[in-house]
Design a protein around this nucleic acid. Structure first.
Lengths: 397, 397, 397
DNA sequence: CTCGTTCTAGAATATTCGCAA
DNA sequence: TTTGCGAATATTCTAGAACGA
């Protein structure tokens, strides 16, 4: 009944291991296997008589579809149907560019440019054809004459214009958000770098803690001069601290030897409060630099080893200091310019708070988690899903 | 016959970064094969005895219909009937302008003006033939009346619609990805902040390590208070923990003096395991809470000075804990709304793994480096260029 | 270039006389040629191995599509594409009834019942060919105004096209930028994770600093075994280090007892340079599980505390090492493809520098702040505002 | 959900036939 | 008779839709 069953039957022979080119596996897995496999096939010199790049390398030609279907396809795909291969090509946006040859072109499929494969996108699975389905109206046997067609074109043009406007808004929004993210990322990278530097310095010097502690026992580190300067320069922060943040000395019991005051004004700790502030200022982002810079270089050289510690700690402290305060301003406002933009996902910039001077454990914790609102996160999730709505919202016109 | 069959080829120039003229992409640049083939035939010097341009180049003549039908036609078309060729000419508006010769004219078919071919419209096959109204102007059939313009507008409108749809998809994709990036960045910022807080606290207390060690030797550090607090705040996480994740004790040898159990419920280590969990819970982002939380709550209550350590370490631990496991789920799936979106560049979300409770050094190590890939950076860059194709690939429709 | 030109070319082969079966001509001309031809083919005993009736005669099977396409089709039709044949079958209502075989069924196509062919109706060419509307009598009436409308539509179409083009460019840009941000974020996440792991490990072992210091005094910490392993596994990194990066020893005075060399190859510091490298190498991503695992647990437990330190520091060091140096290369170039794109906001990727091996305090600081340029930030801000311009740039048309 | 495979359909072009001005 | 066109069929290329992995 089935004369040539094995030879030409479309049934796929599972026994054939479907040798997957290693390159496919090594490729960026984000490239669909079809693309990478096809690229390899076209690129394979041995297969040139059957499939090869075109002369200019901008397209490829299946010279012998029959052999290709019979030999090549089943070795790389789960079928031996040339039409399925072509369907995939079309799905990925390839076009037959020569009516006389099976020559296909795709902008992202070029000889020697395998990295461009990433640009090739699989075509959508129909769905939200907001625009497309509207085209169907043309079949309404419409009335008679060019006027009708013109009316139709004008309507559709309006739709297109509106969609373009929406897209522009969305694009603007996306770019803006991306810009914000970028800035925040830069800040984060800076903080990271600084943290790394600080820690590297720290741990490369085993004596660190020892000296740190030693210093603590010596006390008298506070620099009145610097302090005054600080008071002048950072009044705002000072006030902020007073009204809301409570600065608690570390642990009385642990610092029985500590004579210096524990108030904000008197950062008694061995870790210079001024420096901490300076750090905060120095690493802030956006327009905050001025405040920062002012506080720099307050370290007295004569502090010896301690100086290093100070520097290090300063560096470290700044990590959390360079708050993204301004972020809020940029972020929020930018979100609300189009109804078509779901902006929640972008919201909630992290407020690192300002770690000014020394802090008690409680304060630290608050800053670290209280302000941040760890529990807040779960609630924010919901906003994420709206991303879909953002772009898809232009549904009907 | 046709030396440079570039008629349809987009002429690729490898040296140029594929600058796609938008006009080409938007315009339906696909001239019907009949026109391009016929133009080539007429333009071919070797065939001048059979077919050639007229003296003024405004029309062409088939000097030898028999040879043309016998030799030329079957090489370029699927027939050898001169009448079929003529029928096609008529379909495209050509007119026989000399009763004595097979000389045909079409305003868009002129020597040296191949670009005019795109202006030639194929006659509609009946129906919605807006062409209908051209009946009045039927006298000059092959011309470029309003109908032709309307047809062209409709085609281009379709192209625009498709491109708008593609852009919408891309925009959606981009926004989604950006949202994910934003979430990850928020998480990272949280982690950073927490890390900073922890370290700040840590280094502000030089006795930290000393007490830490001391505590270790004392053992019995569990903090019931914190535990209770946690239990209240993170019930969900608690439950999640029970069902799956196994908590491994740190190092038995390091805790010889530790009397407290080492089960999940009793994190025996001097570093409070409960706190670690709390941290983890607190810093998880968006939809990730569940996975995270699962590993949490392995706490063992202990207090005193150690409490601080616990908090700190908890805070710290969470940094790496709030894994972005779910990322994969969000990332991948989110990619699927448009075929026209190149998503590779966004891939490879970092899997932080789940730091459940306390960990051995080995575990830590695994979490820390197993998945990451410093070497990856340089390589990934290349993948980036392809973004170009992403948006420009939809050329002609 | 075209190995099998004639074979696959759809060009008509005049040599084949296209033998039209007499029966077709004699048949009731109401039966389309496709049906009568196909019936004859299926009915032809000689072709049974290729195409034949099914066992019950209610359907037919193409056993060998490849041979059928290659031999049979061109002899009876004007093509050799199996898909075209299938298309015709579908047009006439045939259905594929076996997913494993090319078996088609049509109620009017049965063995020995040729008369039923006349019952088979060709499917309409979709579009409700309402013939009526083609009568464009109204033609000349609105013709004049119609052309005006057409002109208007054409202008607006041009605007739309330009806007779409701009949007595509912007989308491309945004996607590219977002890709960069994503990559940087991944790196940051990696660094964070590594940092966390390192610190977690570190602080889980209270003896860390004590032993660290102790070790420092002892010197001679190099682990030849690890080194060798590293050399084998991470040759690339080794080479990279050699050719460009300068490794600065930490502090000579701190290592007076250190017998091992201080060159790159011999990280003399108590913080193993090799391990640092290993860390860096080990954390590459992609399908990096292998690397990972390889890098894991490479430390011999019996090496004592120092081993841990090595791991830890390496881990830590890598944080700053996986610099985003190349970023710059990607970033800049990618920015310049559209005048309409404000790209500044994306610029200035952070250059972490390469912290290779050990570093002096000065070096550390430089890396930490010099390259980063904290003062640089203010300048970067400005670039942010351009985002607006990016999307709104389509100004004039 | 994405990707791959299959089957069918849409839509445009191509070929043939025959009629009619 | 010549010439052009309607109409049906044929061929091509691409897309829709369903389904499974």
């Amino acid at each position: 009944m089935n004369p040539n069953d094995d030879k030409n039957s479309p049934k796929f022979d599972a026994s054939v291991p479907v040798p997957v080119p290693m390159e496919c596996l090594l490729m960026n897995n984000t490239v669909p296997p079809f693309l990478s496999k096809t690229f390899e096939l076209v690129d394979e010199p041995c297969l040139n008589p059957i499939i090869s790049w075109s002369s200019n390398g901008a397209s490829f030609v299946v010279w012998d579809p029959l052999e290709f279907a019979r030999i090549i396809l089943p070795r790389h795909f789960k079928h031996n149907n040339f039409s399925s291969f072509v369907r995939q090509l079309n799905t990925y946006g390839f076009r037959k560019i020569d009516s006389d040859k099976w020559e296909f072109f795709n902008e992202g499929f070029q000889k020697g440019k395998k990295h461009l494969l990433k640009n090739i996108q699989r075509r959508r699975s129909s769905q939200s054809q907001q625009v497309g389905n509207y085209v169907g109206s043309s079949s309404d046997a419409g009335k008679f004459g060019a006027e009708v067609e013109i009316e139709r074109l004008k309507k559709e043009r309006s739709v297109l214009m509106q969609q373009v406007v929406d897209l522009q808004q969305q694009q603007r929004m996306t770019a803006r958000r991306a810009g914000n993210v970028n800035q925040r990322l830069q800040s984060a990278e800076q903080r990271q770098k600084q943290m790394v530097s600080f820690l590297a310095k720290l741990f490369q010097n085993p004596d660190f803690l020892a000296r740190l502690k030693q210093k603590k026992e010596q006390k008298g580190i506070e620099s009145p001069r610097l302090r005054r300067k600080f008071v002048k320069q950072h009044q705002n922060e000072e006030e902020n601290l007073k009204d809301g943040k409570k600065i608690v000395r570390y642990q009385a019991n642990c610092e029985s030897k500590e004579p210096s005051p524990v108030s904000i004004e008197h950062s008694p700790h061995y870790l210079s409060h001024d420096l901490v502030k300076e750090m905060s200022a120095g690493s802030s982002s956006f327009g905050l630099d001025e405040q920062f810079v002012k506080g720099k270089n307050v370290i007295s050289p004569n502090e010896g080893v301690i100086t290093e510690n100070f520097e290090g700690f300063q560096e470290f402290q700044s990590l959390g200091t360079e708050s993204i305060i301004k972020q809020e301003d940029i972020w929020g406002p930018n979100m609300n310019f189009g109804s078509s933009c779901g902006n929640e996902m972008w919201g909630n910039p992290i407020n690192y708070g300002v770690i000014t001077g020394e802090m008690s454990e409680t304060d630290m914790w608050d800053i670290g988690f209280g302000c941040l609102g760890i529990d807040k996160w779960p609630g924010d999730e919901s906003s994420f899903d709206e991303i879909d709505g953002q772009a898809s919202q232009p549904k009907d016109y």
